[in-house]
Design a protein around this nucleic acid. Structure first.
Lengths: 111, 111
DNA sequence: GATCTCTGTAAGATGATGCTTACACAGTCG
DNA sequence: CGACTGTGTAAGCATCATCTTACAGAGATC
């Protein structure tokens, strides 16, 4: 059972994605499962803890999944995370007919 | 001539959209052209200047157009504003084949 | 078990954000 | 012209975001 996404949750995912570093991280873990350290290496300009904090934001927003693996923690993109954000963009961006469709799907999912 | 959207600009539009009040404003001016005051009336919980500031953020991000009309200023949604934000969402969210297509379109537009 | 590796968290500095009230100023109307 | 309307901006304030350095603790390795 999946309720309609609350404003707070869609806020969280949109806010998470509004940061360029976090968008870059999302692209990195889009197809590969990567450890926190491996991700941090892609960002030499910011410290490792900063990246760790970005990862937390992404995880809290439901945009990535985390999996412990021995010493490390592996991150991977979570497909469902962006779904409602994408739905909002479509709701605004699509033409009227498509908007009705999107709205109907949202209703559907909220049942 | 339209160059590829810079990180800063996509940031701006995504940040603008990450606020629930601004998303609500976008929905209001999605189909109707509305004056600032009329928009503010929809938000009794926050002051009129606060709404005015939100409108500025939306306008700066290119998400709405403004048009003076006598005393008032009319706001309307600007279709192009969300396009690159939508492209990002698709780039992440779509499957690999669709992602190639999106990337190709971005390339195309940047010429 | 001692040490090394990988990672998250705490604390704090700094800058951005979102709100409020007070004000300014152009346009409308008597 | 003088008052009223619609709107944006300034100043100030509280909160939040993001970064840093320092630290803690779990797991691997010797």
């Amino acid at each position: 059972m999946r309720k309609r996404m609350t404003t707070a949750l869609i806020d969280e995912s949109l806010r998470a994605v509004a940061d360029p570093t976090r968008r870059a991280i999302l692209r990195l873990v889009r197809d590969d499962e990567l450890a926190a350290g491996a991700i941090a290496q892609h960002f030499p300009d910011i410290s490792r803890p900063a990246v760790s904090q970005h990862l937390r934001v992404l995880a809290d927003a439901g945009l990535v999944d985390v999996r412990p693996d021995g010493n490390r923690r592996l991150y991977r993109w979570r497909r469902d995370g962006l779904r409602d954000a994408a739905a909002f963009v479509q709701e605004i961006w699509s033409d009227s007919l498509a908007r009705l469709k999107v709205a109907a799907e949202r209703e559907d999912r909220s049942r």
